[in-house]
Amino acid sequence: MAIKTILTIEDDRFIGEMYIRSLKKAGYEVDWMVDGNDGLIAARNKSYDLILLDVMLPERRGTEILEALRGGGEDLIPNTKVIVLTNFEQDDASKLAMQKHADAYLIKAEITPKKLLAVVEELSKS
């Protein structure tokens, strides 16, 4: 599935702008939400090809957002890929629960925008 539209849910301005700058340069259409509530609403209102999801978010955590979108009986975003991007070292249970529902789980400090683009391209092919 070719990825074209991306929703970034990220509360850190520097990090958000950094990713969006690189993603836009690479030709993706990117929407950016700063808090968890707005992020969840955006994800449900528009069908994105990819969601970049932070964990530590104001209003609503990334864990809850993913649970709301994919945790129930029905997958609310069947045509969307999800990459969890976090710097927070979650406890194992939450981490594994998120990994189960996401297509990738990355530590932000361990990757650069260049590597993120490579991951997105990889997902684009699968």
Binding site: D12, M18, R21, S22, M56, I107, K108, A109
Partner: peptide, 16 residues
């Protein structure tokens, strides 16, 4: 988590 935030930005922009 707090330490990794700035590192993310430093590593990221260095690369860019």
């Amino acid at each position: 988590h707090e330490l990794r935030g700035p590192i993310t930005v430093i590593r990221g922009y260095l690369d860019v």
